[in-house]
Amino acid sequence: MSTIGEALKALRTVLLMQDDVRFLKEAATAQSERLSRLAEAHGDLRDRVSRLEGMIEGAAMAAARQRRIEE
């Protein structure tokens, strides 16, 4: 009976491991999706910062030009 008991115990362990692997696979997929959304948000933020930098540089150039005209 101990051989059958050990075989059933080993089978139970394998089934539990399969559940764990399935859970890890789902967690990795979810993490991948979150990382993808984060990368997209980072790109959007980079674009917004670039536009703001352009506006600031344009305003600085206009202010410098205005000062030269007044002098």
Rank of each mutant, 00 (worst) to 15 (best):
R65V: 12
T29C: 02
R12D: 15
E70M: 06
I4T: 05
A28L: 14
A7L: 14
D19V: 02
M55G: 12
R12S: 15
R67I: 11
L52T: 14
R22Y: 04
R34T: 00
Q18T: 03
G54K: 15
A27T: 05
R48F: 13
A41T: 10
L11D: 06
S2W: 01
R67Q: 14
R48K: 14
L35K: 06
A63W: 04
K9N: 07
L15F: 00
E6H: 00
T29Q: 06
A30T: 01
A27C: 04
V49P: 04
E33A: 03
S2V: 04
S50G: 11
L52P: 03
G43I: 07
L52W: 10
L16S: 03
M55K: 14
R65N: 08
L35G: 03
E40D: 12
S36Q: 13
E6G: 00
E6A: 04
R67M: 13
A7N: 08
M1H: 10
Q31W: 00
A59Q: 14
G58W: 11
R51K: 15
R12W: 13
L52D: 02
I56Q: 05
S36T: 07
A64Q: 09
K25S: 05
D20E: 05
E40K: 05
E57A: 13
A59W: 13
R46V: 12
R51S: 12
M17Y: 00
A39E: 14
A41Q: 09
E57N: 14
E53T: 08
G54S: 15
G5A: 07
L45E: 08
M1N: 07
R34V: 00
R67L: 07
A59T: 09
L35V: 01
Q18I: 03
M55N: 14
